[in-house]
Amino acid sequence: MNIFRLVGDLSHLLAIFVLLLKIWKSRSCAGVSGKSQILFALVFITRYLDLFTNFISVYNSLMKVIFIASTVATVYLMYIKFKATYDSNHDTFRIEFLVVPVGGLAFLVNHDFTPLEILWTFSIYLESVAILPQLFMISKTGEAETITSHYLFALGSYRALYLLNWIYRYYFEGYFDLIAVVAGCVQTILYCDFFYLYITKVMWGKKLSLPA
């Protein structure tokens, strides 16, 4: 474990709970893409299948459980409890255009052609594009609530910190996983436009609004 990965995981945890609290407190999921949340739930479920077979540490197992439970809870709040506030008119990204190609790629490009490894690879590829429905929804509505932009900033920062973690691990542990690094770069690059808007607007107390 290193500081980049620890801060990254905590940033990821913060993002998930900021969103969960926003929906729970405001009793509304306006401006939030349910499709992205479904993709994130799929990412965690396919990635953490080794939860019971491969014990790494208490921290690792605990975080996996928290990530799965909180993301499933978010999907439940959005599609069942506060379904009336779900903005399906703006959450129209065709996620099958993400899941199918990513599924195919996981079969073609992976470290080991075994079910667990292919599912892990699928999860890594899917996570890199899972935020697209959310970013697409913001581009359609033209703006995002400030709390939603904080959620996105924390979520985008987590994988950027993981990139630093992989640089650290490469030099100090000789650890390198090309699939995770390439997907992590794609994932972080997708946030660049948002990071620019967040830093130039939200940081100065303005609302995040995309140029019309």
Partner: peptide, 10 residues
């Protein structure tokens, strides 16, 4: 070195 098969990250 620890190869990618070691899935010790979240």
């Amino acid at each position: 070195p620890a190869g990618p098969s070691v899935k010790d990250e979240l």
